[in-house]
């Protein structure tokens, strides 16, 4: 069992102090020993920069807004429903969708690390991983929403989901008024990353 290392130096302290050099040094060692393929690293970065991101989640939300059957399936079993669209994988093996209503606004945090639905939203933004968000979202969600310029009606309750297990939560924001005639693609364009975490409203400029 690994030791706690309290009192003695961690192995990582042997690496260069500059973070970029530290990453480079570790990559160099692992490549020399045949343990890492640099092209695999490029492929992982390309996946999350160009292939998997919030457009996946926005597609799911737009479908939920425009298709009552899909919405019902999503709320009943989100993992199966989004998997059928090809949205499944690492950090998204168990998905639950929670729907905003005039009565309840949902917001997601991971106070212990940075759990986030990667197949639907990609890599979490820096603010989501910040100490300030992790510390405050559970205790004062309305003040955190104010940091994002969001004010809720006084009779709307806030339900904050702390992702402590491997369940990943997707917020379905409320469909904005006046969007009746829009296509699914036009609706998806109204759905920002932050609106699916619960720190923005759909249709509002991000």
């Amino acid at each position: 069992m690994p030791h706690d290392h309290s009192g003695d130096a961690h192995p990582h302290s042997l690496l260069p102090s500059d973070p970029a050099l530290r990453v480079k040094a570790l990559e160099t060692v692992l490549v020399r020993r045949g343990l890492v393929d640099p092209a695999a690293l490029d492929a992982i970065i390309d996946t999350y920069e160009n292939k998997i991101g919030p457009k996946n989640g926005a597609d799911v939300v737009a479908r939920a807004w425009s298709d009552p059957g899909f919405r019902a399936d999503l709320l009943a079993d989100a993992t199966a429903t989004v998997s059928a669209l090809g949205y499944y994988g690492r950090q998204g093996e168990h998905i639950v969708a929670v729907e905003n209503t005039p009565e309840t606004h949902n917001m997601v945090v991971c106070t212990l690390c940075s759990c986030y639905p990667w197949p639907l939203l990609g890599i979490p933004p820096a603010w989501y991983k910040s100490d300030a968000y992790r510390a405050r979202a559970v205790r004062e969600p309305r003040k955190v929403l104010a940091d994002f310029g969001v004010a809720l009606p006084p009779d709307t309750a806030v339900r904050v989901w702390d992702s402590t297990a491997e369940v990943r939560y997707l917020v379905i924001p409320m469909r904005p008024e006046g969007t009746d005639g829009l296509s699914r693609e036009e609706l998806a364009a109204l759905v920002s990353r932050d609106s699916m975490i619960g720190t923005a409203l759909a249709g509002a400029a991000a």
Binding site: L112, D131, A135, V138
Partner: peptide, 17 residues
């Protein structure tokens, strides 16, 4: 790492989509 509810961390700074 267990920081839920902690005081004193200042504002959350949103970053661009």
């Amino acid at each position: 790492h267990d920081m839920g509810g902690r005081f004193g961390d200042g504002p959350v700074i949103p970053d661009p989509e």
